[in-house]
Amino acid sequence: MNDSVNIKLTQDQLDMLKELGNIGSGHAITALSKLISGKIEVSLTSADIISFWKVPDLFVNPYVDMVGIFSDIPFNSDLAIIQIFTKESILNLINILSDFNKISIEDLKSIDDLDDFSCSIIAEIGSILSGHYTNALADLLSTKLVPNVPKIAIDTVNAILEGIIAKYSQISDLMIVINTKLTVSDINLEGTICLIPSINILKRLFNILNLKYDLNL
C-alpha cells in the first residue's frame, strides 16, 4: 500500500498533455488578443510531473506579489485553471479596457484596493481565458466542461498556490502542472496560464484518448 500514487508517464503521454495545454492556451490567447487587439507572444507549453512542494518553483519569483485568477471546473473530479499575472499587467489591461483607472501600482496591495468595475474586468478576462481554454479541451475530448466564476486574489504566488496545491496533492505527492507563459511586449503584459488536473481526471483523459496508462491508484 502506498499513499503517494505513482505517476509514471511516458514521453508520449507527456507530449499529449503538452498538446492539450497548447490547444487550450492557444484558444484562450486568441480570445485575449482579440480583446486587446494586440499581438501576444506565447512560449511553448510545458507539462511537468513535479513534487507538490516544488510547484511554486515553476514560477519565476514565487515571493513577489501577483494577481491570481482561479477557476475550477467541476467535471466528475477536479480540474483547475490558475492564471497568474503581474500587478502591472492587470493594471495595463484595465487601462486598455476602461477609461478611468486611478490606482497606481504601489497602492494595489489587495483586491479591496480595486473598485468593483476593475474587479469585474479582471474577472471577465479570467472568465474569457479559462472559458476558451476549457472549451477547446471539451471539444477535443467530446465532453462538457464549464468553469466556475473565477475568483481573484492579490498575494505572493506561493500563498496563492498553497490552497490549490493542498487540494490537489491529497492523493499523491506528485502533481501534474501544464504551464503556458504569455507576454505582450506592447503593453508590458506578462502572465502564466496553468492547468492542474487531478489524478482521477488524468485517468479519464487517457481513457477518452485511448492511451494506456500506468497509474497506481
Binding site: 502506498n2 499513499d3 503517494s4 507538490f52 512542494w53 498553497e162 496545491i165 493542498a166 491529497q170 505527492d173
Partner: peptide, 14 residues
C-alpha cells in the same frame, strides 16, 4: 503543514 488529516493505513513520504 498543508492538510488537516492524514489518510489511514498508507505509507506516507512527507
Amino acid at each position: 503543514i498543508l492538510l488537516p488529516k492524514s489518510r489511514q493505513n498508507k505509507t506516507i513520504n512527507f
